[in-house]
């Protein structure tokens, strides 16, 4: 084990949205630490607040409560200007390679936009700008001839590479990856995952990898958080989580994944019903309604995270 340094620390982060029908608890009391060069996976189904979590950490949404420490500095109160400088170090790759690129900008323009906004290259200095863009395109495996193409002329895999190049341009320390491969076909998905792994190896990025796909997160992450309706229900090192899932939701989630092997023992825990609404949630465990093991105790009060073994946290009354 190499010595690791803490890069990001989230403490009791909350993000509520007020909607006409009440307060939506998108992220409700999430805490974790991410070390340099590591990958933290955030898993959950749609509506569990995982994307909001990523965007709130980058302060694309203002947190309702809680603290975000980046590189030892509390960034929750930073003003626009200091935040802009920080954006060089913390970036995001989006899910939808179609919606996340400006359709009126060419590949080259999109990538140079990063450099220009952050003032990394002088706008007038056409030559060094072009040189840097070419370097970045090469790094993410985009052919140089694509520099003047528009996003709509490219397929999903290539577009996602543009999204990655745009982020790489800033040489950040921390990247939120919001379902970066879910819109891609499997063979392309594997290419992009490999690219992201290679880039992490060579530049030492830390990833917050948000996804609903447990097999992807298992492949990439060092540690995993499982979220349900804004709450962290379980957090553990990847190998521990898969070997010994403790929260009933994690267990159900793991059992629901179709494994591409006809001989894999199917032992499905079928959950009843669907996600309830994160608007004005009732106290107690958010999962109690669908939980096959729920008891009265689960509905009384919010269940705190408990450390059941080193680095393995679970929020469930049944677990001691």
């Amino acid at each position: 084990m190499q010595e690791t340094r803490e890069l990001l620390r989230i403490e009791h982060l909350k993000k509520y949205f007020s909607t006409p029908s009440g307060i939506l608890h998108a992220v409700d009391d999430v805490s974790f630490v991410l070390d340099e060069g590591k990958t933290l996976g955030v898993v959950g189904e749609s509506g569990c607040g995982k994307s909001t979590l990523g965007r709130t950490i980058l302060r694309l949404h203002e947190p309702t409560d809680g603290k975000i420490f980046f590189d030892g500095q509390d960034i929750t109160g930073l003003d626009k200007k200091r935040m802009k400088a920080l954006r060089r170090d913390m970036q995001i790759i989006f899910q939808d390679p179609f919606a996340s690129l400006n359709p009126r900008m060419t590949v080259g323009q999109t990538i140079s936009e990063s450099l220009i906004i952050q003032g990394l290259v002088d706008k007038q200095d056409k030559r060094s700008l072009d040189k840097r863009v070419a370097e970045l395109m090469d790094l993410v495996g985009l052919a140089p001839r694509l520099i003047n193409s528009y996003p709509h002329e490219l397929d999903g895999g290539r577009r996602q590479r543009i999204g990655i190049a745009r982020v790489l341009a800033l040489n950040p320390k921390f990247i939120v990856c919001d379902e970066p491969v879910s819109a891609l076909d499997v063979s392309i998905q594997a290419q992009v995952l490999n690219l992201m792994q290679d880039l992490q190896d060579s530049f030492g990025f830390s990833y917050l990898f948000i996804t609903h796909d447990l097999s992807v997160v298992k492949h990439l992450s060092d540690e995993i958080i499982v979220m349900y309706l804004g709450k962290m229900v379980e957090k553990a090192k990847t190998s521990r989580l898969f070997a010994n899932p403790l929260h009933p939701y994690t267990q159900a989630l793991l059992s629901a994944i179709p494994v591409p092997d006809p001989d894999f023992p199917v032992n499905r825990i079928l959950l009843e019903g669907e996600l309830s609404s994160p608007i004005n949630p009732a106290p107690g465990c958010r999962f109690a309604k669908r939980c096959p093991k729920a008891c009265d105790k689960c509905r009384e009060a919010d269940i705190p995270l408990k450390e059941v073994e080193p680095d393995h946290f679970v929020a469930c009354t049944l677990v001691r």
Partner: peptide, 26 residues
């Protein structure tokens, strides 16, 4: 509400730049 606007924001682009280069052309 499109993601590319959010992407520009994440890069630190100013409101004026976002309106001029991202929103208006589209």
């Amino acid at each position: 509400d499109q993601e590319f606007i959010e992407a520009a924001r994440a890069l630190g682009a100013s409101d004026l730049r976002i309106i001029g280069k991202y929103i208006l052309p589209n």
